[in-house]
Amino acid sequence: MLKDITIGQYFPGNSPVHRMDPRVKLVLTMAFIVMLFMSSSFYGLLVGIVYTFMAFAASRIPFKMMFKSLKPIIPIIIFTAILNILFVRTGDVLWQLGFIRITQQGIHTAVFMVVRIVCLIVGTSLLTYTSSPIELTDAIERLLSPLKKLKVPVHELAMMMTIALRFIPTLIEETDKIMSAQKARGADMETGSIIKRARALIPILIPLFVSSFRRAEELALAMECRCYHGGEGRTRMKQMKTSAVDYVSIVITAAFIGAVVVINILV
């Protein structure tokens, strides 16, 4: 059950997208988000859709993973669509019942927002599909490093993120194990009132907390044993380098953003 979570799942590979510098990938993803929200017409959005598909094809990630990344946000998509249909009250009225009024403009906005959200999720999940969490946090650390001058503990924050990401699968596995163990002792987590079910979580949460603290202590000790003392003077095994792939993708992205701007002006 818990194993089905795919957010942030990394698919190792050797596609052009995988080989890109994670810093560039991160910046381009942000540019992609800006592009999606800039486009004010369907043609502009179409450019965004094409860009998403192109990036996905270039990454050689199976297309069905696209739907898998969308699964957890289906409720949000539906909610957004309904809100837009019900609350946009301008434009030609298509159907009316009491105070509920569905207008053409409403449906237009709903479709627009849904497409936008879908592209947003699919495009950004591509970032986590093609870069390992370590690459991402390294990239964030590098991109934020100017803030060090303002005494922001950038390295420490990045390290915290790395550790947190690293331990998510471990904790999921641990939770599964503890749940099985308590179920074997007759713990009943599926029936009863909400209060009863919340109480039934205690036998799972306490062991989980205890083991998390134990893990934290062990990890801190292990890091200290290997002379970790913050980011100062630390060198990296994997240097981040920008290469031809990065320049090509920057140019392509710039062209797409340009197209959206032009479409916005013309339409």
Binding site: R185, P203, V210
Partner: peptide, 19 residues
Amino acid sequence: RPIRFKVGLVFQYPEYQLF
């Protein structure tokens, strides 16, 4: 559930389930 009470299962490192 009743059948589960007939088969007691002690997991590996069972001390981690104490609460």
